[in-house]
Design a binder for these strands. Sequence first.
RNA 1: GCCGAGGUGGCGGAACCGGCAGACGCGGCCGACUUAAAAUCGGCUGCCCGCAAGGGCGUGCGAGUUCAAAUCUCGCCCUCGGCACCA
Length: 857
Amino acid sequence: MTTTSEPGTKAGGRGRSRIDRYEPTVIEPKWQQRWDELGLYETDLEDTSRPKSYILTMYPYPSGDLHIGHWYIVTPTDALARFHRMHGENVFFPIGFDAFGLPAENAAIKNGINPLDWTMRNIEHERTQFRSMGAVFDWRYEVVTCEPEFYRWNQWFFLRLLEHGLAYRRRSPVDWCPNDGTLAREQVEGADRHCWRCGMPVEKRDLEQWYLRTTNYADELLDFSGIDWPEPIKVQQTNWIGRSEGAEVVFTTAPDDAQPGGDELRVFTTRPDTLFGATFMVLAPEHPLVATLTHPDRRAEVDAYVAAAARRTEIERLSTEREKTGVFTGSYAINPVDDERIPIWIADYVLGGYGTGAIMAVPAHDERDFAFAQRFGLAIRRVVAAPGTDDEPLDAAFVSHADDEHLVNSGEFSGLPADEGGRRIVNALSKRGLAKATVTYRLRDWTFSRQRYWGTPIPIIYCDRDGVVPVPDADLPVRLPDTVDYGGRGENPLNHDESFLRVECPRCGGPARRETDTMDTFVDSSWYWFRYLSPHKDDGPIDRELVARWTPVDQYTGGAEHAVMHLLYSRFWTKAMRDLGLVDQDEPFKRLFNQGQILGADGERMSKSRGNVQDPDDLVAKYGADSVRLFLMFMGPWDQGGPWSETGIEGVYRFVRRVWALALDPHGREPGEGSAGPLPDGQDESAARAAIRSAAHRTLRDVTQDYEGFRFNTMVAKLMELVNVLQRYRGTSVAGLSEWDEAISLLLLMLAPAAPHVSEELWARRLDARGEEWRSIHTEPWPVVDERAAAAETYEVPIQVNGKLRDRIEVPTGISEIELEQLVLARERVRELLAGRTPDRVIVAGGRRLVNVVVRG
RNA sequence: GCCGAGGUGGCGGAACCGGCAGACGCGGCCGACUUAAAAUCGGCUGCCCGCAAGGGCGUGCGAGUUCAAAUCUCGCCCUCGGCACCA
């Protein structure tokens, strides 16, 4: 094993060079330890002498092993943090663990262990993995969400939200997964309505659950001004919130021999212009008036339908999707515009949770209503028509809603343009108190309860006398019991844990029972970045001074799969905290970048069960962390991701070794060649020196821009190009001269954020060789481009004739358009192609970069 | 069906503003070094015709705008992600 501190080459040495081999497995741990000892990456949060920069990447779930996907997320973010440090910013780049969640519980049930033990063991392992990649994390600020010092503040927040009416308890149908219990609406995925975690089909259950009032913020969440987020995420959130403008219209039930009538039936419609076309009404099976409106002779059928709808999983509801189902209640409603009696039906295509849970059906102008009307033989009446189509029969719903349409069969409103007619109808009805303009959202309140052990206990006590009683702040945290007995079941073990369950009522002191539901684990990630600033603070959730100074986060990175979960909840939570008077910001993350996802080699998501997981440790052992980091950045655009393939990592490894050899041994000509090689293309020495300098500074300019624009793949490519240039001059008379030396320095500085170990090692050796005292490359300032050097003296202009490339010409940088044109026309090749004809036009394109000679005939 | 992202050599990808298509890397072929191999170094490598000089064709498909289109417009096809009867 060679020592790493002595200079690798004798300056001016001739002949076969002897330099140390590049051994990443030796130098990487060495530097990691050194950085640690020196506290090089400790962030002083109190330091206000430099501009702050809060860089954050989504913390991982500690599932046992970091796989290459985690590295893919963290590496460029780490490089970015380092890049900002080199720009003199006080960078905070923390990490932690999203430690509550289902996999821990599954593992615990399977292996008969405690989820806490499983989780903490995994975290311990993942910490060492993170360290091996050489990230600048300051571990003093680590947050582990399953620790009471963190989750007690979830409970504290919950109590504050409760006080402010932002948390509430309600019985209603919830999405229910047989494995995971209650799910938030956001956690049900796909056309087949499966659980986001386990993939099981989701059912509906009528349960009493805790909710957070996210819908209070629906409009505000639609406003993305002031944050720089990727367009697709904004679009997804916008669609998810699903604001739609329309009107609420009051229908009234008609009296008949079975019931007195007069009940209000409210409906929401976005098409009030079609009100005269309502030929029946449909209630969701869950609608509260279903029982009242059902006629005795229809009761059996209706009850059966409602029961079946409740029992059906969403998946079944979908499989019968082609054919609409429904039953007639026997009752009628009065259409407020024309007092017409229309039948009231029940069908599961109307959703209980959206709008009012009831619709006016306008089969002529709605595809679903049309299908339903056809199936059950209900009337279809056209009330909107395009010019000249007033009486055209409908063989499908007419839904175009174009500007030139007008109303027909709509009483006094007939003939009006559809939009205006709609407005006037609402106006007329609203004077009688029967309609009002309304906005409806698809967004639902956040279903917050989970029937699991491994989460934050909801700090609520149920007392027979006092009802629902919040746990007093002084009694927080409500701790999870240390021992847990799953009894082989999947059911929440807290339900059977007498020592947890039994509690005195904080109000009356009588016997009471604890809430056994825990919080959705998305609560943790909804505010964790605030906690990073003061992870051990025990008299409050956040340090308000530090929060004011450091948040919002300047740059957040993470996957787009969290678009309508974590990234939406975080925005909600921040706004709620603002309204609780805790912070004075509206948004959590100023700038967001979504990196792509690394898939397994089979193109599927990496998972242990599929056996397609790539372990970064193996790669690090073989190539070193620096090469793995560079490779992950080089693979392709960061927002793209893609299937994992090791193909190509050799190339990056080769590149690092070349950097090594160039930096330590400029004269090496392998092997055995004694004399300096020739300069390329008959360049003289001064041209060669200028060329080196120009290449280095052009690279610096481009690489800086690439870092800023998150183009890490081309950043690495440009460093490779510079290395290729230097390689050409290696062993020539200009190698080792001041321009060469500067180029190597720039190369190492540019490489430092991406490949921190090898650049640090080579930097140290250079300082040592010059007899200078050691200082870390990572505390060096980012170099400044010498634009004069970057500009080349001459450049090549491609020449086109009629748009086709025919020739090239080398011209001086400052050439004028006229001179360039003359040079081009004088070219032998151009004259040949012109064959005596006069060009119609000569186009000197974009900054004299290209010339196109146009000639006809 | 609706919304979003994308389609470029054998492969990953580059070309950011309409201006040399294929940077950089992988793979492949040839050569140097070596007893040999590895490593390293050098050259070639979009497809077709041609000994060559050179020419033709090429960015999913088809039209169009332009001196000039991977890039802009229109119409299609395909892949991936999201939504899922939202009245």
